[in-house]
Design a protein around this nucleic acid. Structure first.
Lengths: 209, 209, 209, 209
DNA sequence: TATGAATGAGTTTTCATTCAT
DNA sequence: AATGAATGAAAACTCATTCAT
């Protein structure tokens, strides 16, 4: 339908078009309920073209995942890049970034969240997997860096920073997941407030006394 | 081939047999990779019989979910039923019950966890959904009851108890989910320790100062 | 479309129906050009039913192959079962059986012939393969038995009977294959005569002088 | 990417490159498993260029077949071109040439053999077919010439030389085909020995007594 | 109640061929 | 003459669900 993608930029663009279509559909209907046919239909290309740009359904999913992690990583990085912030400020900033990512990039967020539990469905790990895990690990390391800084500066009590990082992350994750379920309506508490409260609780628990 | 289930007990028994088969398989292979045929094979009944006891694949999944929530609810209830426990003891007990449930009833746990993110895959909400949300709500209310008690007794600082409940729950959930992913190996920190640390952090944040 | 196959005989019958449809189509259009859909269409069953009776396209092919070998084996066996036949008579009888098989069961013959060279297309050997090779081996052993008998009775010159068997078989095979190609028309010599001549030549070469 | 083939020689060269790539791949993986893309990749040209030199996948296959027949024809011709050879010597020489062709040009041999049985797969006959049959016919006529010479010189018994030619050819063909199948391992007899034995048997049958 | 044979829409993926540049 | 992106028709196989017995 579209004109042939002749230059590298054209091809990048076409890849993006397909990626966007897939993102939209994965978000709307989930991985299983999204068929290649639907993706190509929305992207306005033929089945064959899809396979010109992506090896498989799985691969496009992973590509989106990678993008999602990158986006969040960048958001978080930026959030803590202001000089003169205290640890608590930085951690709050990361939490906020997390929340903003959830709100503004829900499609990506859902893709990230989906992968948590459905690795079986996505079958064999492959190289991609490793790449992705590395990306995720780097993200956690960044957060740990912030906590470490806090401990060193004396703002936070001495602690196992790696454990603390995972606690913080798991906490945020858990809260958003809670909100993600239909339960959100059940809970009748806004996610934003929840995160704030969680941070408060956590921070009181972490600061040096 | 199987004898007819004439009495109500017979029927209940047969239902349980199918349920157990499904639980085993959902746990081993996930929802998508479990076929009705496999379930009936393991249960030793025919395909038709399956549909005599469950309306659809989805329904049996939901039934298992409900069972899982019930089991955990009972475990948590029991954990806090000792008289003379402080709030922190009670909350710890609940967290421990959560951990124990995760360890001892992993099949159920996975089923519960799966549902979080895959509601899309399970399609139309149906009545079951409501029943389940009610069950889950009751569970959260029980936890809130504990926190409320602590605030009233002055052990905990005054706070929005409903928010705090959700924070605690989300925290635990998030941690286990973190551990459930492949990331567990990445993280290299045992779940048990993580939960302990999380509680510590949270409790320090919650107690009256 | 047809009524449900309830008894074992019904099922055998249905299996046969599908088998016949496949045989016809493989013969008419070759393996690659025969689709499961065409087979089920001709057999008057649904796609799903096909897979109820055969694991794969390959399997139905192999099943036909096995039948073909069995049929020929029986024909050859019967051909040499008359008491009081000399070796040459027996070998002639086998060659005739081969020719009759080619004429009367061309569909089977073609399936047997096809497999010769296209094992790649049929991919991984599997158990079936072994079974089939055993069947083919048994057939050759039967022919060798006849030649051995001839050598022992002094009708034939002493020789490596296994080699001779393979020569004879390869000869017959080669001739029919020659006839099978479009070349038949080119050659303008009837297959029957060719086989007769070949036997004459071979026999003159084999008899004790 | 490739430079333009301006002169006729350039074009011939490019054609050859593609042909060689196809030969290699057809031999390694068979007709069905060889894609145009793989061929062009190996040949170092673009997909479009392939279709500039060959009308279809089928056509390149046929072209290789023609080459194969030509090569063997030349080998056989040369083998019998020594003056002062007897008939049996000449026939042996042809058989040896056949065997050598099988050994040294296995790729071509397989291509020739494949066509025997898979004409269906190659679809509509087309003009090529005729060309090929003519080539094959010429080959057989050459062999017949040798036999005729033998009959005329009295070395061989009087016989229908055309039939005998076909018998000999079919015999050789049949033996090699036997060896080509997986059965080779089953048979456990070397092809070379088989051909020798076959010739012996045949010659004893053909010589004047 | 129980059975299990039958269904058929639905899914991913391949690849020969075309054609605008 | 050469390119290679785009095409889209196949094709094999799966599986939740139905329904006649």
């Amino acid at each position: 339908m579209g004109p042939r993608a002749r230059t590298i930029e054209d091809k990048q663009q076409r890849r993006r078009t397909i990626l966007e279509a897939a993102k939209k559909l994965f978000f709307e209907s989930g991985y299983q309920n999204t068929t290649i046919e639907k993706i190509t239909e929305v992207a306005g290309v033929s089945t064959g073209t899809f396979y010109l740009y992506f090896k498989s359904k799985r691969e496009i999913y992973m590509a989106l995942y990678a993008d999602g992690v990158d986006i969040f990583h960048q958001m978080a990085q930026q959030a803590i890049s202001w000089p003169g912030m205290g640890v608590l400020g930085r951690l709050s900033a990361i939490a906020n970034a997390y929340y903003r990512f959830y709100k503004e990039y829900t499609e990506y967020f859902d893709i990230l969240a989906f992968i948590h539990l459905n690795q079986e469905e996505l079958e064999n790990p492959s190289d991609m997997r490793t790449v992705l895990d590395e990306k995720a690990l780097k993200l956690l390391k960044m957060i740990e860096g912030v906590i470490k800084g806090g401990v060193e500066s004396g703002e936070l009590a001495p602690m196992d920073t790696w454990k603390a990082t995972n606690v913080l992350w798991g906490m945020m994750d858990g809260l958003v997941m809670l909100a993600e379920r239909q339960n959100v309506t059940v809970i009748e508490v806004s996610l934003e407030e929840l995160i704030k409260q969680a941070l408060e609780i956590a921070f009181y628990g972490m600061v040096r006394r």
